[in-house]
């Protein structure tokens, strides 16, 4: 079992209203010195078996088809995370850590 993590971000030249709102809230809480915030999405895909180049290519296709909209977002990274504790049970750190 392994997890593939897909990171999606709003395109750099488009306005990101959510990131902007978070960025405006930070100084109000005393977190100063942060000049900009952009908010993206992280997907954790748990896969059966080995992570082959073919599988990664399929994941990239899925990331560009459903997980992101190329008009407004970029897939900025796809990375593989190995599971050492057998599928994320008990809050495993690589498979989502949800402790399901």
């Amino acid at each position: 079992m392994a997890t593939i993590v897909v990171h999606v971000m709003p395109k750099p030249d488009l306005l990101d209203p959510q990131g902007k709102a978070v960025g405006a809230a930070l100084p109000r809480l005393g977190f100063t010195g942060i000049s900009d915030v952009r908010q993206g999405k992280r997907f954790e895909l748990t896969v059966e078996g080995d992570v082959t180049d073919e599988l990664l290519a399929r994941v990239r296709e899925a990331a560009e088809t459903l997980l992101s909209n190329p008009v407004i977002e970029d897939v900025v990274a796809i990375e593989k995370v190995e599971c050492r504790d057998g599928g994320g049970r008990g809050g495993g750190r690589c498979c989502g850590g949800q402790g399901s």
């Binding site: 306005l15 209203p17 959510q18 909209n69 008009v71 407004i72």
Partner: peptide, 16 residues
């Protein structure tokens, strides 16, 4: 827009 039948996309209202 998501189907690409129309150009562009919708994001969160600017004022949230």
């Amino acid at each position: 827009c998501e189907s690409h039948l129309l150009p562009g996309a919708m994001i969160r209202n600017a004022h949230l």
